[in-house]
């Protein structure tokens, strides 16, 4: 075991960890925001939208994230030369970066997995509670905001921590599209120093620590939610 390289690469590693966390937070937040309507329309309809949401979840959950990432980055990228105005558009600085595609792919993936779980959450809220809310004269949107969503969210909360950890474990895939998150940094160290195992072990250890922190955060959140059993 040889760890001489560690001080030299420490700043790069810290930046990689930071990037991993940024990828995780952005993709989970946006993914959750999309998951709510995706879960909801599958319960409430209208039917065409429900089918669409169902199809989206099946397609995303049925294909490897790695292929999705490559499809988005290289597949779309190979179309750019045939659409010249894209390069002149104000979006180009964003579309140029692998980061955008990484976030996009991770967000879509989280939305699909979490959408399926939110569907279960919405379905599990007892009918009586929604009927009671209606009897109080709440509008459909108020019911959603005050009763249905909070109840559904509380039901899925215990699984959410596991889902976020799953998402953390998906982030290293974006290293294959030039994003230097922590696994990418590990690969760079491997390439520069010709040490194979030490950088990989360090990266593995970093993921174990991040998982531990996420588990703690969700334990804390769950304790904040009042529960009567």
């Amino acid at each position: 075991m040889n760890w001489d390289w560690l001080p030299q690469y420490a700043p790069l590693l810290l930046h990689g960890i930071w990037l991993t966390i940024v990828l995780l937070v952005i993709s989970c937040s946006f993914g959750m925001a999309f998951a709510i309507p995706i879960g909801l329309v599958q319960v409430t309809g209208p039917l065409p939208l429900a089918w669409l949401a169902k199809g989206f979840c099946t397609a995303i959950r049925g294909t490897p994230l790695l292929v999705q990432i490559w499809l988005l980055y290289y597949g779309l990228g190979s179309l750019f030369p045939s659409i010249p105005w894209i390069r002149d558009s104000f979006m180009w600085p964003v579309l140029r970066e692998g980061f955008f595609y990484g976030v996009l792919a991770l967000t879509i993936s989280f939305a699909a997995y979490e959408g399926e779980i939110m569907r279960g959450g919405f379905m599990s809220v007892p009918k009586g509670e929604l009927e009671a809310a209606r009897a109080f004269g709440m509008s459909p949107f108020t019911i959603l905001r005050r009763i249905w969503f909070p109840r559904a969210f509380r039901l899925v909360l215990p699984t959410l921590g596991g889902e976020v950890i799953g998402q953390l474990k998906a982030t290293p895939l974006v290293a294959t599209i030039t994003i230097m998150e922590v696994f990418g940094v590990g690969s760079k160290i491997r390439q520069d120093t010709y040490h194979v195992y030490e950088p990989l072990l360090l990266v593995a250890l970093i993921y174990v620590c991040l998982t531990f922190v996420i588990t703690r955060i969700f334990l804390w959140i769950e304790r904040q939610v009042p529960q009567k059993r």
Binding site: I165, L200, L201
Partner: peptide, 16 residues
């Protein structure tokens, strides 16, 4: 196994 990404595990195990 459940806290280290599959990609990292696969690369480690494949080589090591």
């Amino acid at each position: 196994v459940r806290s280290v990404p599959e990609l990292v595990l696969i690369v480690i195990l494949y080589y090591a």
